[in-house]
Amino acid sequence: MEKKVQHYYKLKAKHKEIEKELAELRQEIVAYCAGQGDTDTVIGSYRVKLVTQNRKEYDDEKLYNALADPQVWRLLSKADPAKVASLAKLKVIAEDKLTDTYTVKEVTLLQVEKQ
Rank of each mutant, 00 (worst) to 15 (best):
K83V: 02
K56W: 07
D80K: 14
R55I: 05
R55L: 13
M1R: 07
I93R: 00
T41R: 00
E57R: 07
L50C: 07
V104W: 08
I43W: 02
L25V: 01
Q27I: 02
R74V: 14
Q71V: 09
K12E: 13
V104F: 09
K49W: 05
Y102M: 05
K78D: 10
K62H: 10
K16M: 10
E113V: 09
V92M: 04
S45L: 11
D100V: 08
Q71P: 03
V84W: 00
K49A: 05
I43T: 04
R26Q: 10
T99A: 14
V30T: 09
N54V: 09
G35N: 08
H15K: 15
V107T: 09
L109D: 09
D80W: 09
I93A: 02
A68M: 11
T108F: 02
A79D: 05
Q71K: 13
H15N: 15
A23I: 06
P70R: 04
V104N: 13
Q111Y: 06
R55K: 13
Y58F: 15
V5A: 14
Q111K: 11
K4F: 11
V92H: 04
T52P: 05
K14S: 12
K49P: 03
Q111E: 11
H7Y: 10
Q36L: 10
I29Y: 06
K105P: 07
K97V: 01
L90G: 04
K91A: 08
Y102R: 04
K3V: 13
L22D: 09
L50S: 04
G35F: 02
